[in-house]
Design a protein around this nucleic acid. Structure first.
Lengths: 193, 193, 193, 193
DNA sequence: TTCTAACCGAGACGGTACGTCTCGTCTTCCA
DNA sequence: TGGAAGACGAGACGTACCGTCTCGGTTAGAA
């Protein structure tokens, strides 16, 4: 039995190492093809041992996921001007533009999530957070009468994020501010139809 | 110079072999995890040499893609009752139910398309075909005045298929006939809002 | 390279086809590395179907063997001047020079014989023929008192052909007329030692 | 940049792994046919990843070669009784008996050397070592007047090892102690002829 | 200051997929 | 029926990536 376990001994985790891994993982996915991003490549780019990666993350997907989450967190759009139409447009434009910039990252994570349960669960949580934000925004619009009264917010959230992911993954059409604007206006104009 | 080259000599391609490869590729992706589907596994299951696979398809992704396309072709919904609301609902219900049944296949191909350019191009073409169908249907609804006059069919198509893929890939919500119905009605009711 | 059009023989086996296969098999082994000589390559070079090869020979090794045997048959040295020392030197010189010229062929067959029982058996028979020739020659020398009376012809035959193959296969020393002369003289001088 | 590069970092090569690969490669070649010895088979038998084999050896032939060299090294005959006739007989008997025991190994390597340049070079070096030993022994015999004064040691070395390889590869006659004895005596008796 | 647990880079290792190659058989059509 | 073209099954080859483990060196807190 451990007579009195000390709270912590030994060298502490180096935050710079954690950051280097996340940064280089994201950069690699953004710059190169997803296929070119291996754990070895991340380790090499970050000047880090592969073991160090696996000491702190359970799988490659988990690293990519956290890298993405961190990038996304840096650009949460400021909201709440009070005007729903403006807020919606701002939210979508910011979201789409950011997503487009890191599209390689997002696509890589989505691919990884199809084979790695850890990444899948992480992605689900990340996505849930984003969906909740948009859901709250839409609910406010509904309460303010800016959306048709029979609108199903859940369905609408999936339509919006669905369009975004669909375009990112297939690549048949752009994901940019223009699309965001057109999409936002199409949702609001409807009520006046 | 060969004065008149014969159109073809030698043993002909065995259609049964092609079919066996596609069938077992699809079955494996539907039954097992995406990670478990290797070219060796497909070859073994189909009782076929790996070389035969690579003789006819440039990569694993290309095989999976064609397998999916064939499965999808088997279930094109009969349409054109003339009533737009009915047609839309039928189309979406059939599409969603089929997609759900072969969700493993679809998810595997989407993952593969992120790393294999051949699969990516194939998926883009497949998706284009499906999008054209829905686009035509929506355009008809627009002309019949069953959709708001300022509707952008392109955007709407991406919202619908986007929702479907998004749910398939993330798995946070079902893709079934019920969703299809609710989605179809939400699009049409709007005009009366 | 372009296969010269051969006359068609109808139902009978076409000797031109047989010859084309043997010729190109030998040429390939002489010109290229052994590793580069596949049945497909032989068929392509000879303008012949792979099936035709396997219709007449049981394995690749059998083809190479027959090709070699034919090449060797073309250069059987004229002997029997009656003077043993001269005959031996002539025999060795002719044998060594021929072997050196087709060394690629010989090396390829020896390699093939280690894995293909048919080639092994064929090579054994071919080698037996050559050994019998030399054995007869040496026996004559023994009877004429030109070799030490306790000479074991079997052992000596293996020493001579052994030296030749050993040098061909390892490549550490030449197999030419000079070596043949030195070897022949060393065998005869001995008796005077 | 790096002020003093450490001589080695990282996990060290596991000698047991190296030995397991060499041992099982040799055993496989001795027990089974040469055709049955694949890198996969060696890896499986040695409980080793195929990648580990290719990390340390450039080709299959290189592994087999080193396996053979090691086996041979284990049985270098003790020499130098001082009596040349005895030493020669001992050397030949030990060499022939060992070669016969691992004949499958030797034949497989000789075949591999015909297609794999790495194996060819390795075999040449190995053979050079053995030839030097015998060459030294024969030179001693020559100096002691136990061999005819006009003997060419190089030629004689190739006759002896040539006979051995020739018999191993063709299989028309045994390679055993008896042959070794007869051969040794035939070389020495000559001087008295 | 000494001790010691934990961090870290380098890299060996087992497992397993990928895509290519060759062998020998089988099929189709032509002459 | 002989032959050319070439599809096919079996299976080896060598490469790549994933996640684990081992080695020696380093660092920070406890004794």
């Amino acid at each position: 039995m451990s007579p009195e376990p000390r709270p912590h001994t030994g060298r502490r985790r180096n935050p710079a190492v954690r950051q280097a891994i996340l940064d280089h993982a994201a950069d690699l996915l953004i710059a190169h093809d997803y296929a070119a991003v291996s754990t070895d490549a991340i380790a090499r780019a970050a000047g880090v041992s592969k073991h160090t990666i696996y000491r702190w993350w359970p799988s490659k997907g988990a690293v990519l996921l956290e890298a993405m989450a961190e990038r996304a967190r840096q650009q949460t759009p400021g909201l709440n001007t009070g005007v729903f139409a403006e807020d919606l447009e701002t939210f979508l434009a910011a979201t789409f533009r950011t997503a487009d910039r890191v599209s390689g990252l997002l696509r890589g994570i989505m691919a990884e999530a199809q084979r790695d349960p850890v990444a899948a669960e992480g992605l689900r949580q990340f996505v849930t957070g984003r969906r909740d934000e948009l859901h709250a925004l839409l609910t406010r619009g509904l309460e303010q009468g800016e959306l048709p009264p029979d609108t199903d917010p859940d369905l609408l959230v999936d339509q919006i994020f669905g369009l975004m992911w669909y375009r990112l993954l297939i690549g048949h059409a752009p994901v940019d501010g223009d699309v965001a604007t057109r999409l936002a206006r199409s949702l609001i104009h409807r009520q006046e139809g």
